[in-house]
């Protein structure tokens, strides 16, 4: 099957437009979904046009939902080294986790903010394209065994490289642990703190009325082609306050025009006020 034809059918019959995802990655994901579901092309096309639940599951399956608590633990102290002075001086600040998946990074960030005594000042927003992931992020409910490994990461951040003098913190301060069910659930004060919405970045507009001090978008835009990436950077630039910061994945970098509109400060891309002449 020509996957571009399929993406067009999907775009015409559902709210989802994957046509500007990078060719190879979307092709790979589609092939996986087709194989996992054991579908013929005709069945796939029929279900796409008639079966809403199938489409929701498809969106969840073709998007990559890898996330973990404190992913890249060595980077978090660096984020906050740069962010902290500015955040401390603010009365309130807004953070958007764009493409939050099941929300583990959202909770990681809230835990760090709480340890820094900054959570009360923060407004936390999170979005994902998949309704299923939005539900998971709201529920803050994860597998214990998987996350047990991340405890080490948690300690790396909080103990081995203390941010602003954080001392040892017990994991159970933030999660209820059910060993029998192999589950952890984020405490209610964290779950209540975050506003989670279904939202597709491809629409190139923010689903919130406010501007942001920080936008986390880690390992999301790597699945988009360069043209779409550039449009998303433009949208983020618009949605950030002056000197607001964008945080990308550890192996993502800005290319093209928007490279000049952000200044790299450590692992952060900070919105600049630089004035650019129009040449044409």
């Amino acid at each position: 099957m020509d996957f571009k034809h399929y993406l067009q059918v999907l775009k015409d019959h559902t709210p989802y437009d994957f046509s500007n995802y990078s060719d190879n990655s979307i092709k790979r994901r589609l092939q996986k979904v087709i194989a996992d579901n054991d579908l013929s092309i005709d069945e796939l096309l029929a279900k796409t046009q008639n079966d809403k639940a199938f489409v929701e599951q498809l969106v969840e399956d073709i998007t990559v939902n890898t996330t973990e608590l404190f992913r890249d633990p060595e980077e978090w102290p660096a984020f906050y080294e740069v962010l902290l002075p500015a955040l401390k001086g603010k009365k309130t600040f807004n953070i958007w986790h764009a493409g939050c998946s099941s929300g583990m990074e959202v909770y990681s960030n809230m835990i760090i903010l709480n340890e820094l005594g900054l959570l009360d000042k923060a407004k936390i927003y999170a979005t994902d394209i998949s309704h299923g992931m939005v539900r998971k992020c709201k529920n803050g409910n994860y597998r214990y065994e998987f996350n047990k490994r991340q405890l080490q990461a948690f300690e790396t951040i909080l103990i081995k490289h203390p941010i602003a003098g954080i001392s040892k913190v017990d994991f159970s301060k933030y999660f209820d642990i059910d060993h029998e069910k192999d589950q952890i659930t984020a405490k209610e004060f964290l779950r209540k703190k975050v506003e989670v919405k279904q939202h597709d970045l491809v629409q190139e507009k923010s689903p919130f009325y406010c501007k942001f001090d920080i936008i986390f978008c880690r390992n999301v835009l790597i699945y988009f082609n360069a043209t779409l990436q550039s449009k998303i950077y433009q949208m983020f630039h618009r949605q950030l306050y002056p000197k607001g910061a964008m945080i990308l994945g550890s192996h993502e970098s800005l290319t093209g025009f928007y490279k000049t509109k952000f200044k790299k400060n450590g692992p952060l891309y900070v919105k600049t006020n630089a004035f650019h002449y129009k040449y044409h």
């Binding site: 994901r29 990559v64 890898t66 790597i222 192996h251």
Partner: peptide, 21 residues
């Protein structure tokens, strides 16, 4: 290949990274 990413070669002679399973 960076740790924790898949590394792919693309037709336009660039790399792409992915955090797929």
């Amino acid at each position: 290949a960076p740790s924790n990413y898949h590394l792919f070669v693309e037709y336009d002679n660039t790399f792409s990274l992915s955090t797929e399973e």
